[in-house]
């Protein structure tokens, strides 16, 4: 099968993408070669499952070849690669697509007349199936608290999973089902703006859905807000690939942190150069991608920051997981926290 919908025909085989690719540091993978196989021989190889779709190569390609977009297309209807946690998260969303009663959150909070919606994503399921010492649900609580404090009292939107993982794992059929139902639910709710606290939801709802409303990441709402915090804590920020390279939002989380009085120090690879957490779309959690995660933790350690901030619950999970795993060999003295939890924690009872 040849993919023509993405722009990979533009590739002139310079190989820069392969040189940039973080996965290439740990295994033999070659985006250039995959493109070659597709463009010249019209075939694919298993290498399509190694890509983290982090977008680093796209960012560096002199021809502007959108390799992740190609990967998304070429994976569709192919037997998929290694999915973490035995695919339990994917299966849950698969079932959601077929169950009318299903929703990602049982909670009914917020102001029902609000024109601002908040979508927590699959945080509840993270709490159930990640065996980590992280309270994912607190991301939703913190987000609502922060939005309230700046008079943007949201209504919690009961939706299905956004379908991000299905889309990138090659199950477009299920993704389309979820998209259709979610689009209907959003339209019915009557909101004009949807706030997410997850980089993946933000990307998916913005780019892969055609919604008539505005979708924003919570950092974009908070960046100009006065939260009344002045912490002086030294933090470093991990750019989630979905928020950074996919959506081009590098400043909002940093501005938010700076406005709240935190001193933001940068890791060696930051902004559009930032390294991936290594398990995007819940795929490829293995010893190789763990090497990437460890490298990321080491970079954060070198900054001497007290807290490593993320804006994606998945990055939060994967990085924390690695930190736990390394405990017996290497000490990482910083906390890894979601932006909203970090900020709401400092607001105290206010």
């Amino acid at each position: 099968m040849t993919i023509t919908s993405s722009n990979i025909q533009l590739c002139y085989q310079c190989g820069k993408c392969t040189a940039i690719c973080p996965v290439r540091r740990v295994i033999k993978t070659s985006p250039r070669n995959t493109i070659y196989l597709n463009n010249v021989y019209r075939t694919t190889s298993d290498d399509i499952w190694n890509c983290l779709t982090c977008g680093l190569c796209y960012d560096g390609c002199p021809q502007g070849v959108d390799y992740p977009e190609f990967i998304k297309e070429v994976r569709d209807s192919n037997e998929n690669g290694d999915i973490a946690h035995k695919g339990v998260f994917t299966l849950i969303s698969d079932l959601m697509a077929d169950l009318d009663e299903s929703k990602t959150s049982l909670e009914e909070v917020g102001n029902n007349d609000s024109k601002i919606g908040y979508y927590p994503g699959c945080l509840d399921f993270h709490d159930m199936f990640f065996e980590l010492d992280v309270d994912f649900k607190s991301i939703a609580d913190s987000s609502v608290k922060l939005l309230k404090s700046i008079d943007q009292d949201p209504k919690l939107i009961q939706m299905k999973c956004c379908g991000h993982d299905q889309l990138w794992q090659g199950d477009k059929g299920t993704f389309e089902k979820l998209k259709e139902q979610n689009t209907r639910l959003i339209k019915e709710s009557g909101i004009e703006k949807l706030v997410t606290s997850c980089a993946e939801c933000y990307r998916t709802l913005s780019l892969d859905y055609d919604l008539p409303i505005e979708v924003v990441h919570i950092s974009q709402v908070l960046k100009d807000a006065d939260l009344g915090i002045d912490s002086g804590i030294k933090v470093t920020y991990h750019d989630a690939c979905r928020l950074g390279r996919h959506m081009g939002e590098y400043d909002a989380p940093r501005d938010t942190l700076a406005n709240a009085g935190s001193e933001v120090v940068e890791m060696k690879h930051n902004r559009n150069d930032a390294w991936c957490c290594g398990v995007s779309s819940m795929m490829n959690c293995d010893d190789k991608s763990k090497a990437l995660r460890k490298a990321r933790l080491d970079e954060a350690k070198a900054t001497n920051a007290e807290v490593l901030i993320t804006t994606c619950p998945k990055c939060l999970a994967h990085l924390n997981c690695m930190k736990d795993e390394q405990e017996s060999v290497e000490q990482y003295d910083y906390d890894i926290k979601d932006l909203t939890v970090f900020l709401a924690g400092q607001m105290g009872g206010k």
């Binding site: 849950i92 049982l106 159930m128 199936f129």
Partner: peptide, 12 residues
């Protein structure tokens, strides 16, 4: 217990 909670989200 977690499973029942998850299934509740799914309506099962």
């Amino acid at each position: 217990k977690e499973m029942v909670d998850a299934l509740e989200h799914l309506g099962l």
